[in-house]
Simulated scan of single mutants.
Amino acid sequence: MQTSIRPGQIWLDTEGKRIQAHAGSIFYENDTFYWYGENKEKTTPGSGIWHWGVRCYSSKDLYNWQDEGLIIPPVENDPASSLHPANYMDRPHIIFNKNTGKYICFLKIMEKDSTQTLTIMSADQLLGPYMMIKTKFRPLNMSAGDFDLAVARDGKAYYYFERVHSELICADLTADYTGVTGFYSTHFPNFYPPYVREAPAYFTRRNLHYLVTSGTTSYNPNPSEVACSRSFHGPFEILGNPHVNDPSNTSFCSQISSVFKHPKKKDLYIALADRWITDEEGMISYDVLADAYDRYFNPDRQDEPVTFTGSSYNVNENTHKADYVWLPFRFDGKMAYLDWKDEWRIEDYD
């Protein structure tokens, strides 16, 4: 039995196996927490396997997780399927539509031509089975990268996504949550990586809408940024890096995938993050990394050579052993901070 959360440490399920719910989120219903994410159990060097579906776990305490199996299995026999194990499926997000009674899952797919699309699926139960609704979908005819989904109290839903290597988009979803209406707003415009903001994680607190984002350096960690607004569509005020005393500028060597508000606590918001790189020898200084990305993408510097070295650039082949960094936010006015904790307990919060 586990009685605390230990960020960055190996986390095992109730059967003693590594938890495989990467780039994950938590869904709460019927007094049970459900943690789902990318299943990387077979993603090892030379395997050619990017994912093995979406796996889900259940818990009553957020410490001990029971494996509920694959809620979205891979499609092994069709290389053209977005769910084929060799295809780049990332960052599942599930929301519930009260009007239709359907659970809607969005999946980001990196296509072979480097464009990024959506696969959208639907189910009658959280644990599936999920049926394909759309594949190779380009919302607003854009290449759509990392994303998060948000549902307002009145049931209206919003889709935050990175317009690849450009800016962040907030798009209104249709009433059934399976498409976009065409109304959208743009945020955090930047010209190229590593400055483009990706991996948006949305939450709301005290009538403010928050987005936590990362820079764009592939699987390599970089500084996070928190911003807030009085509406879903902004404008967003950039508040700064939430990670306190992080001289490495790597968000404690992690990337946040979602933020979960504990339903039974007054003010406990938990940042769920992945530590994709577990080999310290594979780490590269963020300053060196940022300069390399700038030289590669900056049109005024592309004549300068770029040499990417270190195992961290091949981390996507070894993510079966990636760990998790879950930390509670601390608020000071509008600002949301994340302090490093070797160990912490849900019970210590009101």
Results as ranks from 00 to 15, higher is better:
residue 3 T to S: 15
residue 4 S to V: 04
residue 8 G to K: 00
residue 12 L to F: 10
residue 35 W to V: 07
residue 37 G to W: 03
residue 43 T to C: 15
residue 43 T to H: 04
residue 44 T to M: 14
residue 51 H to F: 01
residue 55 R to Y: 01
residue 60 K to S: 13
residue 62 L to K: 05
residue 70 L to A: 08
residue 74 P to K: 08
residue 76 E to W: 08
residue 78 D to W: 01
residue 78 D to H: 00
residue 80 A to G: 09
residue 81 S to T: 03
residue 82 S to H: 04
residue 89 M to S: 03
residue 90 D to F: 08
residue 93 H to P: 00
residue 94 I to P: 00
residue 94 I to F: 05
residue 96 F to V: 05
residue 98 K to D: 15
residue 101 G to H: 02
residue 101 G to K: 03
residue 110 M to Y: 13
residue 117 T to C: 13
residue 117 T to H: 01
residue 120 I to P: 05
residue 121 M to P: 00
residue 123 A to R: 01
residue 126 L to I: 11
residue 130 Y to V: 07
residue 137 F to I: 08
residue 141 N to A: 13
residue 142 M to Y: 03
residue 146 D to P: 07
residue 146 D to V: 09
residue 147 F to T: 01
residue 148 D to A: 03
residue 154 D to Q: 12
residue 155 G to P: 13
residue 159 Y to M: 06
residue 160 Y to E: 02
residue 160 Y to L: 14
residue 161 F to C: 14
residue 168 L to Y: 01
residue 169 I to E: 03
residue 176 D to V: 07
residue 183 F to W: 03
residue 199 A to Q: 09
residue 201 A to Q: 12
residue 202 Y to A: 11
residue 207 N to R: 10
residue 208 L to D: 12
residue 210 Y to S: 02
residue 211 L to G: 02
residue 221 P to K: 00
residue 224 S to E: 09
residue 226 V to A: 06
residue 227 A to Q: 00
residue 229 S to W: 08
residue 231 S to Y: 11
residue 234 G to I: 09
residue 235 P to R: 06
residue 235 P to V: 08
residue 237 E to G: 00
residue 246 D to L: 06
residue 249 N to L: 14
residue 255 Q to G: 09
residue 258 S to D: 15
residue 260 F to S: 09
residue 268 L to V: 06
residue 271 A to S: 11
residue 278 T to W: 09
residue 280 E to C: 10
residue 289 L to W: 02
residue 292 A to K: 14
residue 299 P to K: 06
residue 309 T to N: 14
residue 312 S to Y: 04
residue 315 V to S: 04
residue 319 T to A: 07
residue 324 Y to P: 09
residue 325 V to H: 02
residue 326 W to I: 11
residue 328 P to F: 03
residue 329 F to Y: 13
residue 336 A to G: 14
